[in-house]
């Protein structure tokens, strides 16, 4: 009962043109001032919305559009690594923001084969990214999540990982051992 009153009131107030279900949708097809206003409104709103969307969408997906975040990061002198050993090494992510806190620190495994030959592994398991732990005794990397295991050269030994450990590119620049770090290693990487 109340509803009915409501409906009639609404019709009386907003529709001076009884017979057409609504003003706009009808007016769009008509020529004249009404039609022009409707077309102008639609255009202006579309243009305005499009303009507004540029920064909105831009900021929302900006991180993905950023240029290559990888930078050469020094891990210290090459001499700190002893042949035959694999060690966990800390480094600061070159891609950072002021509020990153602990997450700006990062780690990788450096395997020194001989003073000129290295392998640098990401700690993230190739299965789903959990941190693998190096066991120097059995010379294996083990993942605590789903049990992926890797040999000391990073190749897959057992478990669900589809491939071996991710590797960072490395170089020796003068007296500095550097890796190309910055982005979280993932399956869609070349190395």
């Amino acid at each position: 009962m109340t509803k009915k009153t409501e409906e009639t009131t609404a019709t009386e107030e907003t529709d001076p043109n009884p017979g057409s279900p609504c003003e706009g949708c009808d007016g769009a097809n008509k020529g004249g001032r009404r039609g022009f206003l409707f077309a102008a409104g639609t255009t202006l709103l579309t243009v305005g919305g499009g303009l507004a969307a540029i920064p909105i969408v831009g900021v929302a997906i900006a991180p993905a559009e950023a240029s290559d975040p990888n930078r050469w990061v020094s891990l210290g002198k090459p001499a700190r690594f002893k042949p035959g050993q694999t060690v966990l090494v800390k480094f600061t992510n070159p891609w950072d923001s002021p509020t990153d806190g602990e997450t700006n620190e990062n780690v990788c495994y450096v395997r020194c084969i001989d003073p000129k030959t290295f392998q640098v592994f990401a700690v993230n398991c190739a299965h789903l990214g959990c941190p693998v732990e190096w066991f120097a005794q059995s010379r294996l990397f083990m993942c605590p999540c789903h049990g992926g295991v890797y040999y000391e050269d990073g190749s897959r030994a057992s478990g669900p990982p589809p491939r071996g450990l991710f590797e960072y590119e490395w170089r020796i620049d003068g007296d500095s051992f550097e890796i190309l770090g910055g982005r979280l290693p993932g399956l869609q990487e070349t190395t």
Binding site: I61, P63, A66, D100, T103, N104, G182
Partner: peptide, 11 residues
């Protein structure tokens, strides 16, 4: 990158 807001987990 869209999900993480960058190339790595961060602020």
């Amino acid at each position: 990158s869209v999900v993480l807001g960058g190339p790595d987990i961060s602020g």
